[in-house]
Simulated scan of single mutants.
Amino acid sequence: MKKREPISHIMTKGVVTVNENDNLRDVVEKLKKHAIRHIPVVCGKDVIGIISRTDINRLTFGALFEGQEGADEAILDMLNIAQVMTSKPKTISSDTIIRDSAEIFVKEEFHALPVVDNGELKGIITTTDVLKYFLEQYD
């Protein structure tokens, strides 16, 4: 097993983001279109939050992602991203060791961490990325 491998080897580099001024419908559209579960919220180059499919599901009782017709989407117009996102999310740098990121996920119970180097968003790493990496070690 490669014990000192950095997360830069497994993180997603082409990160889908939303701006703090976008609306929640934009978030839902991007989550569906890109088949992702977490989106960093940016203001310029700064990561100011993260919003997840779970955050949206809490508002809509999961109806938006389960294809239920007639889901009450009015809530998406009543709230803004800042009211729903996790503000000031924990971030990690691209040279963080994969094992260390796994420890953060276990300890903090996060499922995604924006990867930020020198104040700039470089990627995102998720629990799925880490699990896939560990599974590959058994091949």
Rank of each mutant, 00 (worst) to 15 (best):
V106P: 06
N80S: 08
D77I: 00
S8Y: 10
R53V: 02
I36N: 01
P40N: 01
K90Q: 10
G123T: 06
V15P: 02
L131V: 05
T127M: 06
P114S: 12
D129I: 09
L24F: 08
D100A: 06
N23Q: 12
K88C: 11
H9A: 13
T126H: 00
G123E: 01
S8F: 05
N118E: 15
I39F: 06
V27L: 08
V18M: 07
H9S: 13
E120V: 14
I97P: 07
I125Q: 06
N23R: 09
P114K: 12
K107C: 02
E108P: 03
S93C: 15
L121G: 01
N21F: 00
K90E: 11
E109Q: 15
I50L: 07
A102I: 13
F65G: 02
V115W: 00
R58L: 13
I51M: 07
K90G: 07
G44E: 03
P89N: 01
M78I: 12
G49K: 09
E20T: 11
T127W: 00
A71F: 06
E109W: 03
F65M: 06
T91E: 02
T60C: 07
F65T: 11
A63I: 04
C43Q: 15
E109C: 13
A63G: 09
H34Y: 07
V47W: 02
G67T: 14
D95K: 12
V16F: 02
D72W: 10
N21T: 15
E20D: 09
D46H: 12
M78F: 08
E109T: 14
C43V: 06
K13H: 12
E20P: 05
T127C: 04
L31Q: 00
E66W: 01
R99S: 13
S101H: 10
I75S: 13
V28H: 00
I51E: 08
G14Y: 15
G123F: 00
V130Q: 05
T86W: 10
T96D: 03
E29Q: 15
K132N: 14
T86D: 10
L64C: 11
K32F: 10
V116N: 01
I98F: 04
R25F: 12
P6K: 07
